[in-house]
């Protein structure tokens, strides 16, 4: 399974791999808990408006070949 993933992801743009390596060895300065008021805003989170995301992902997955990426779960349907 892991090898297939690597094979399928072969050809992913270089900048994605660069992004991945930034995560691997980030030298970012530590953000202190009291500096997180902006990060706590709903629009700064990755699950901002889940119902919107639900509709949007459902529409795109029924009209395009690609789907997924952000999470797992949710029901399948006969629309694709």
């Amino acid at each position: 399974m892991k090898r297939t993933t690597i094979r399928l992801l072969f050809g992913a743009p270089v900048f994605l791999l660069t992004a991945a390596s930034i995560f691997g060895c980030s030298a970012a300065t530590t953000v202190q808990p009291w500096e997180k008021q902006n990060l706590a805003r709903p629009e700064m989170t990755f699950d901002y408006d889940p119902l919107d995301t639900r509709y949007t992902e459902h529409i795109y997955s029924s009209k395009e070949a690609a789907s997924g990426g952000a999470g797992v779960g949710g029901g399948g349907c006969g629309c694709n």
Partner: peptide, 17 residues
């Protein structure tokens, strides 16, 4: 990852069989 007090980033790898 929280990168700065104004930046947050995410990286996911998914596989489906």
């Amino acid at each position: 990852k929280v990168l700065t007090k104004n930046d947050i980033a995410q990286f996911n790898i998914g596989y489906s069989h």
